[in-house]
């Protein structure tokens, strides 16, 4: 007799594959890993997306709960820095916390920009907790369509 692992649904091989996939996904399911730089200095780097379009580079960054006043975006040479502080108001001193997953404190993220970004025309917008920075490309690096003439 063979020893076979008991499978509830032998007829459905996808079930087992799904289960494995679920298990692996769960391993990565930590919302955001907070990076620690030192024992006392807890800062975190927010996750970013950088998307290249024909005329610009767009940087998207999730910053929920951040006040525009506490946010600083700067371009220095070819380095983009997103810096700020996340302060959640806790007016009630006697508040009883049951669970707190939210991070509070300062954060910073630096990105080196590709060649040809026009630093004078950078546009940054914070809406619904999402920061969108549009970095236009200089004319010289934009793709050019060359017209083909027929004789």
């Amino acid at each position: 007799m063979d020893l076979v692992k008991w499978n509830r649904d032998v007829m459905d091989p996808f079930k087992e594959l799904d289960r494995i996939q679920d298990e692996i996904n769960r391993l990565f399911d930590f919302p955001r890993l907070i990076e620690t730089e030192g024992i006392f200095d807890r800062t975190f780097s927010p996750a970013v997306d950088v998307v290249e379009h024909a005329d610009d580079y767009t940087v998207i960054c999730d910053l929920p709960g951040v006040d525009p006043k506490d946010l600083q975006v700067s371009v220095e040479g070819d380095v983009l820095t997103i810096k700020g502080e996340k302060k959640y108001e806790t007016k009630e001193k006697d508040a009883k916390y049951y669970r707190n997953e939210l991070f509070e404190g300062s954060f910073q993220r630096t990105l080196s920009l590709p060649y040809g970004v026009d630093a004078d025309k950078v546009d940054a917008r914070l809406k619904d907790g999402v920061l969108t920075i549009v970095l236009p490309k200089k004319e010289e690096v934009k793709p050019k369509q060359i017209e083909i003439k027929t004789k």
Binding site: P31, Y98, N100, E101
Partner: peptide, 10 residues
């Protein structure tokens, strides 16, 4: 996605 949260009573 599961959003991060905090709960307090006051």
């Amino acid at each position: 996605l599961r959003p991060l949260y905090r709960v307090h009573e006051t």
